[in-house]
Design a protein around this nucleic acid. Structure first.
Lengths: 151, 151
DNA sequence: TCTTGATCCTCCAGTCGCTAGAGGATCTAG
DNA sequence: CTAGATCCTCTAGCGACTGGAGGATCAAGA
């Protein structure tokens, strides 16, 4: 049982910004930054002007962090958050957002793979000799060595 | 012999910054930016203070552009350029730089692929119904839905 | 009670690699 | 001679933070 003492009053001790940072892995200045751009609501303050948070903040910030890690831009996250705040809405928008994002990830992967092939070719041609005959420098100096025009 | 008086000297008409931009595909403000950070040397000026370039500048700028397209950072390019300027040196450094870069590209690809899988799962789980049951929001709200911790 | 060190606050500046705009000078073609 | 293209410098902005200065406040130990 997750009772932590005999008294059943789990009154939620507000978190400091440092505790919030530790629980979410988001750095303190970043938390303040998110507040400043309106991704996080303005945190209530103590008498001595320190920000206080509750468990809801932890969830919201984790949501943000997770979305950022997944490569969503702040603007997209703003939209996702407002959807998450309003769970009766149809989720076509969230779905569209995610699908758009997926397409972008896939194109990024494709471009990186082309790029990896170029750099790999570059590295493999290097005889570790002299710059004069260095494939790396040579390839960089002349696009004609490349397989693709696209980059 | 490169005497320049009586012979039909192909004296190189200096390029304007606009011509250089057209020949390399690098925008004019970017060229000036490269000069300001020392990637390009300070261009000699005409009497009316306009920058002049020669074919060497075209090659150098193409080198820079190509390296940027391949994802090298400016600092790395700075090193590559100084190596290219000094072709008697062993090229271990250039090779190392490129190999480091390759490793980074590969790790980026791996992370993006993990990410793609997450987002794909996210999208596929969406029933286009309500946010309440929307997989996208749910996954973002809880990292535990993810396959990987790494992102 | 005092003191020390940790934590917090605000504000400002810097990061990277450009990009854009203001406001003005100069070139080139007709 | 004039119109429009091109150039110049300088400054500020982008996105998403990150770091530091300088100062207030808190919690714990002597």
């Amino acid at each position: 049982m997750p009772t932590m003492s005999s008294t059943p009053a789990p009154l939620p001790t507000p978190l400091t910004i440092g505790a919030l940072a530790r629980q979410t892995g988001v750095k303190i200045p970043t938390i303040r930054y998110y507040e400043s751009i309106g991704l996080l609501p303005e945190a209530p303050r103590t008498g001595s002007n320190r920000r206080t948070y509750e468990d809801g903040s932890v969830r919201r910030l984790r949501f943000i962090r997770h979305a950022r890690e997944l490569g969503f831009e702040v603007e997209a996250i703003r939209q996702l958050l407002s959807m998450a705040d309003d769970p009766g809405q149809p989720c076509r928008e969230a779905d569209l957002l995610a699908r758009t994002h997926l397409a972008e990830i896939e194109s990024r992967i494709a471009r990186l793979e082309a790029l990896r092939d170029e750099v790999r070719r570059m590295v493999e041609g290097c005889a570790q000799d002299q710059v004069r005959s260095c494939h790396v420098i040579e390839v960089l100096a002349d696009h004609a060595h490349c397989l693709h025009d696209s980059h």
